[in-house]
Design a protein around this nucleic acid. Structure first.
Lengths: 203, 203, 203, 203
DNA sequence: GATGAATGAGGATTCATTCAT
DNA sequence: CATGAATGAATCCTCATTCAT
C-alpha cells in the first residue's frame, strides 16, 4: 500500500524523516492531552524543538501532521505485531499467540492508538481512507491466521463467521484502549487476554 | 442518575425543552457532517431556525450543546432499548432478544450514536463522566440479563467472564456503528446479529 | 435650568416618576460596582423589580438611565446642600458653614457622586453639557457666598481669585470622594473639613 | 516600584517596546475620543499601523493596553516633572518651581492625564493598585518639597496640614485637566498657576 | 402597562499559515 | 535551512433594543 505523499520544502530526506519523527512524537503527546483541534501548530513546533516556520518546511498543513501521526502509529503497531508472531507454531498456539500479541501491542501503545482512534475522523477524506486501508490490512492479517487455523482443522466456521471473527478480534484489541476506563478496573492485561481467548474459543 | 443542570435564560420550561430539542437535532446533523469543532454556533442556530442570540438564551456555551446531544442520544438509546425488551421471556430467548434489540437500536440510531462516540471526548470533565456513567448503566442492564441467564442455567460462566461478556456485547453494538464502513460491506443487520449471537453462544 | 426631556411610553406621570426612581437607585448601585459599560439593562431591570421590556417603557436608551442618574444625583446634592445652608448667618460663619455643608453632602453621597464623576463622560454630548451646567450652577452658589463674604469684608481678594476659590472648594468637595482611598487613611471628615478651611482661610 | 509584567509572544525586547509605544500612542488618542469601552482592539491596531493579530502578539488582553497606557503616562509625567525640578534652589523658589512644573506637565500632557484619570477605574484590581501607588509616590515627591520648605522655615504648618497640602497640590494639578472646560474659559496656565500659588501661600 | 423571547450587529480573541530576513 | 513576526479570517459570545402577546 503506497503511502500518501506528504510534500516537504526541505530536500534532505534524512532530515525530513528526523524532523517528522520529532513532530509526530510531540503531536501524539499533545493530541492525547488536548485533542487535535485544541492543539496549536505552535505548540507542536515548540515541543518538537523548532519554530513554526521550520514546521511548515516539513509539512503543508496541520492535517498533514495528523496524517503522519496516524501513519506512524499504524506502522509501529504493524511492526510490533509482526515481530511478536512466530510463523512456525502449530495452529492452536498460533491463534493464541496472535491474539496475545495484538493485545500486548495495544497495551504498549495505548496512547498512540487511542489518539489515532479519536482523531482520525478529522483527516481529509483521502487520508482517512488510507488509514482505513491500513486497518483493513491489519484485520486481513488476523484473518489469515484464522484461515490457517481453519485449514488445520483447529477452528471450524464458515467464511462469514471467520471474517467477523477477525473484525471482532481487531475490535477487542482496540477496546482495550478505548474502554480502558472500564476494563482496567476489573482486569489485568493477562486476565483480559485469557478471558477474551476463552470467549473466542468457547472453552 | 441526576442530570447535569444546564441553565437557561428563558423561564418557560416547555419552550426550553422545545428549543433544545431543535438544537440537538440540528447539532447531531452538523456534528455528524463536520464534527463538533468544525461546526459553528451560528450554523446550529440557523439550522434550528433561530438566531445565535436565541441559541444562547437556552444554553451557556457550545459545550452545553454537545452535552445536550450526548444526554439526549443516551436517553433515547436507553428508552428504545428498554421498549424492545420483554421481561417475561425464558432465558434463551431473553438473551437473543436483548442482543437483537441492542443492535437494532444501534442501527436505528447510527448517526446519533456515532456522533456521541466521536465527540464525547470534547466534553468538559464533569459532563464526560456523566456520559460514562450512562454507558456503565447500559452495560449493567446487559449484565443483568446475562446474570439471569446464568441463574436459569442457560449460560454457565464465572463472574469475570459474565462481566466481560456484557462489555463485549456493548462494544459489538457500538462497532456496528463505528465500523460500519467495513461491516456493511459484508453483512446485513440480521446477518450481523445472527453471527454475533452465534459467536457469543459458541454454537 | 430646564431638564432634558426624557420621553416615556407610559402616560401616567406618577408611575413614570416611581419607576424611574427605582431604576436610578438600582443603576447607582450597579454602576458603582461594575461601571456603566459593564452593567446591563437586564441587570438594572431585574434589580428594579421589573422586566427589560418595562424598563424600555420608561426610557429610550441605556444612556437615558445614566442621564437620569446624573440628574437625580445632582438634584439631591443641591437639595441637601441648600437645606444645610442658613442664609442669616454672618459672613465668617456663612463661609465655614457652606464648606462644611458641602463636604458633609459629599460624604453622605459618596457613592452617588463618585458614580456621576466617573461615568458622566459616557453621556451623549447634550446630556453631558446639561450636567456640566448643573456643576457650574453649584459652583456659582459657592461663589455667591464668597462674594457676600467679600462684600462684608470678611474675605479680601479680587474677582479672579474669588472665582478660582469657588472652583477649588467644589473640587475639594469632590476630592473627598474620588481620593477617598488616600484621604480616609489619614483624616476623618471633621479633620478634613477643618484643615481645608484653614488652608482656604490661611489661618 | 516593580511594574506588572505584561507578557508578549514576541521575543525581541526592542521590538516589543517599539510596538507597545505605537499602541499606547494610538490608544491614548482613541480612548480620549471615545473612551476605553467604546474603542475596539481593531481600531487600536489599525491606528498603530498593524493588524489585530499583531496587537495580540504584544499584549494578552485589551485591559493590558489600558495598563500600558496608564503606566506610560505616569512614567512620562514623573520624568518630565523631575526634569523641571532644580534641587539647588532656595525654599521659596523651590516651592513655586515645583508647583509651576507640575502644572506645566499637566498642561503639556492634558489628554494623556485625562485619559488615565477617566479610564483607570476599568483596570483589573491589581493594575489599579499599581497605578494608585504611582500616584502616591508622586504626591510623596511633592510632600518632600513641602517638608524641605518647612525645615527651612519657609512654610510653617503641622504634619497633617503638610500632608493635605501635598494632596491639594496634586489635585490642583489634575483639575487643570479634568475641569479644563471651566478653567480655560477664565485663566491661562500662567494665571492659573499664579493664582493657585497665591492661594496656597495665602499672599 | 407589563412581559420576556427574539434578534443580530458587534467585539475580543485565536491560530493556521506566510514570508522577509 | 531556520526563524518568528505578521496577518486576518474565523469564531464564540454578549447585550441593547424590539415587539408580539
Amino acid at each position: 500500500m503506497e503511502k500518501r505523499h506528504v510534500p516537504a520544502m526541505v530536500k534532505d530526506e534524512q532530515l525530513v524523516q528526523k524532523r517528522r519523527d520529532q513532530m509526530v512524537k510531540s503531536a501524539v503527546k499533545l493530541f492525547q492531552e488536548k485533542g487535535f483541534h485544541r492543539t496549536t501548530t505552535r505548540e507542536i513546533a515548540r515541543l518538537s524543538g523548532f519554530s513554526v516556520g521550520t514546521l511548515y518546511e516539513y509539512v503543508t498543513s496541520k492535517e498533514d501532521i495528523l496524517y503522519l501521526v496516524c501513519d506512524a502509529v499504524y506502522d509501529e503497531v504493524t511492526d510490533r505485531f509482526n515481530q511478536l508472531l512466530d510463523q512456525s507454531l502449530p495452529a492452536a498456539e498460533r491463534f493464541e499467540q496472535m491474539v496475545t500479541a495484538l493485545f500486548q501491542v495495544m497495551d504498549d501503545m495505548q496512547e498512540e492508538v487511542l489518539v489515532m482512534y479519536q482523531e482520525a475522523k478529522s483527516l481529509p477524506k483521502e487520508s482517512l481512507s488510507y488509514v482505513l486501508k491500513k486497518d483493513e490490512s491489519m484485520t486481513a492479517n488476523i484473518r489469515n491466521v484464522i484461515d490457517e487455523c481453519r485449514e488445520e482443522g483447529y477452528l471450524t466456521m464458515n467464511e462469514a463467521s471467520a471474517r467477523l471473527m477477525a473484525e471482532n478480534i481487531t475490535v477487542k484489541g482496540h477496546m482495550w484502549t478505548f474502554r480502558r476506563w472500564s476494563l482496567r478496573k476489573h482486569y489485568t492485561l493477562e486476565q483480559y487476554t485469557r478471558l477474551q481467548l476463552d470467549a473466542l474459543l468457547s472453552t
